[in-house]
Amino acid sequence: STAGKIFRAMYDYMAADADEVSFKDGDAIINVQAIDEGWMYGTVQRTGRTGMLPANYVEAI
């Protein structure tokens, strides 16, 4: 389960779609929910934006 875990971005990511979020390497991602194998839903702490993000760009900390 991803509940209550904080994730950290390992790479920069530029949102490719309106429902995705952009983030930079080192950003903390909070309130994360796993959607499926490849995608998560969460909030980028630095920007306050919430949306979909690729699971392979982040790691649990």
Rank of each mutant, 00 (worst) to 15 (best):
A9F: 00
R46S: 10
N31M: 08
I30S: 07
Y41K: 14
M52V: 09
Y57C: 11
I30W: 03
M40G: 04
I6P: 04
V21L: 06
I29F: 03
L53Q: 02
D17Q: 10
Y11Q: 14
E59T: 10
D36L: 07
T43K: 06
A15S: 04
M14L: 12
Y57D: 00
A3R: 11
D17N: 12
L53V: 15
N56L: 05
D19P: 01
D27G: 03
F23V: 06
V58P: 06
G51V: 03
A18G: 13
R46V: 06
Y41A: 05
Y57L: 13
E59L: 03
D19R: 13
A9P: 03
G51R: 01
N56V: 05
A60F: 06
I61Y: 10
A34T: 14
R46M: 00
M10V: 09
D25M: 15
S1Y: 15
I30C: 08
A3P: 09
Y57F: 11
Q45L: 06
S22N: 05
Y13S: 03
G42L: 00
W39E: 08
D25K: 15
R49N: 11
F7W: 12
V58W: 01
D27R: 00
R46Y: 01
G48E: 07
V21W: 00
E59G: 08
D12Y: 00
S1P: 09
V21C: 03
F23M: 08
F23S: 08
Y57H: 08
G48W: 03
G38S: 14
M14W: 10
V32K: 05
A28R: 14
T50S: 15
R49Q: 15
D12P: 08
M40A: 06
Q45V: 14
I30Y: 10
Q45C: 12
R46I: 02
V58Y: 04
V21T: 06
M14P: 03
T47G: 02
F7K: 08
I6N: 08
W39F: 07
D36Y: 07
A55V: 08
A9M: 00
F7G: 04
V32R: 08
A3N: 13
I61F: 10
I61G: 12
Q33D: 07
R49D: 05
V58G: 05
A18V: 13
P54W: 02
F23E: 03
V21F: 15
D19V: 04
A60Y: 06
G26M: 02
N56E: 10
A3V: 11
A60T: 12
T2I: 10
N56S: 12
R46L: 02
W39G: 07
L53A: 08
G51F: 00
K24D: 02
D19W: 06
R49L: 14
Y57Q: 07
V44K: 04
E37T: 07
I30N: 08
F23A: 04
T43E: 03
A28K: 14
K5A: 11
M40P: 01
N56F: 02
F23Q: 04
G51P: 04
G48R: 07
G42H: 00
T50R: 12
Y41F: 12
M14S: 14
D17L: 00
W39R: 11
A34R: 15
M10L: 13
G4Q: 09
A16E: 13
A9N: 08
M40C: 11
A55E: 06
Q33T: 14
G26P: 02
E59M: 06
A18K: 12
V32I: 06
N31F: 07
S22R: 03
Y41V: 11
N56R: 14
D27Y: 15
M40L: 13
A55I: 11
E59F: 00
P54A: 01
E20H: 13
V32T: 09
E37C: 09
G38H: 15
A28E: 14
D25N: 14
T50D: 04
M40R: 02
T50W: 06
S22Q: 00
A18E: 14
V58S: 05
A18M: 09
S22K: 05
F7V: 06
N31C: 10
Q33I: 15
Y57I: 06
I35D: 09
E37L: 04
T47Q: 03
V58E: 05
T43I: 02
G48K: 06
D25W: 10
Q45P: 06
D25Y: 10
M14N: 15
S22H: 03
G48V: 02
G48T: 02
M14I: 10
G38E: 13
M14T: 15
A34S: 13
G26R: 01
R46G: 03
V44M: 00
A15P: 08
F23C: 06
A3C: 09
Y41E: 09
D17Y: 06
A55W: 01
S22E: 02
I35C: 12
F7S: 08
Q33G: 06
I35S: 07
D36N: 12
I61H: 11
Y11N: 15
A18R: 11
T50P: 09
T50Q: 10
M40F: 11
W39K: 14
A9V: 02
E37A: 10
Y13I: 00
D27S: 02
G38I: 12
R49K: 14
D17R: 12
V58L: 11
V32Q: 04
F23H: 02
A34M: 13
T43N: 02
T50G: 06
D36F: 10
G42K: 03
G42T: 01
A60C: 14
E59V: 07
A16W: 05
M10G: 01
G51I: 00
M52W: 11
V21M: 07
Y11I: 05
M10A: 03
V21P: 05
D25A: 15
Y11M: 13
